[in-house]
Design a binder for these strands. Sequence first.
DNA 1: ATAAATAGGATTTTTTTTATCCTATTTATC
DNA 2: GATAAATAGGATAAAAAAAATCCTATTTAT
Lengths: 152, 152
Amino acid sequence: MKITMAAEYAVRCVLYLAKHGQDVLVSRQEIAERTLTPGKFLAKIAQDLAKAGILTIKQGAKGGYRLRRDPKDVNMLVVVEAIIGEISLNECTVRPSTCPSSLDCSANLIWQRARQQVRETLRQATFADLARQGSCCVPAFPPPLHASEQIP
Amino acid sequence: MKITMAAEYAVRCVLYLAKHGQDVLVSRQEIAERTLTPGKFLAKIAQDLAKAGILTIKQGAKGGYRLRRDPKDVNMLVVVEAIIGEISLNECTVRPSTCPSSLDCSANLIWQRARQQVRETLRQATFADLARQGSCCVPAFPPPLHASEQIP
DNA sequence: ATAAATAGGATTTTTTTTATCCTATTTATC
DNA sequence: GATAAATAGGATAAAAAAAATCCTATTTAT
Ligand code: SF4
Ligand code: SF4
């Protein structure tokens, strides 16, 4: 299964929220602009993230998204899989029925191993760690808005 | 980058050849049937494998493919990448220019790490090893033809 | 009540993947 | 050499997936 743009946008979105901290409300528009994500597309992605319990959506005027959990309890694996489903390199690793010889296939074992490594690496990457270092597709200028700036 | 069916077929093809041994000629038709690969599609794939130096193509009557190298010197990484190009989970790991913040992105480092693990795992999987254990989408009956059976 | 903002479903557009068609070329065999 | 068997190679079609947008409805602050 491919890491799609939707999954990439999801990571950016959650990372942007993580930088603002748990439960801080940020408008969809702001996130979209700062993470270079098409606004309506972000809406779709956010719905999946909300279903997965990663963020909460506030509708209406002054609405937006807020990170529901502590950034250290959210990792890239749950975010990515909330969007694209279970990661697999080769379909047969997840749905053995798609290949008649999956039960006795040496290549299948390799795909399984690679898959587990990827998933483990993404699982270990928490958004607390990610937020600490570096940016993520957020232009340096103007600087990110802070919660305190939202009502000037 | 996604592991496509073409890449999967390529692995099956090389595995099938590996089971017959280096330099043993096998017809495209036989490979296609035994690995459940569409024949014309296999032709395309084989051309890429030939370009990558993995197999040689013999044209004409009684033509076919033969594994060019010792199976222990061919691994899944070279076969897969011969078909789909350099493996990457996220485009930015291979072409940094596709994302403005790739130089200072914490997520990018994670994608890089996952990518290297996948590539290393596939690199370690030689076709000598793969051929030793298990089948690979080749129906149990009728049993694979051996070189000695080809001219009855 | 009004305006701002997102939700949610349907739909469109674009891209990628998968597969096949068709003609040309190569090779073994007669 | 002629013939038939087999693959090459480019073009193209068909299918599937991904990316993005449209539109109406709903929610919420003021
Ligand atoms: S042949 Fe092996 S690796 Fe390929 S699809 Fe079947 S089980 Fe998976
Ligand atoms: S934001 Fe980071 S991970 Fe996402 S595309 Fe850009 S560099 Fe890659």
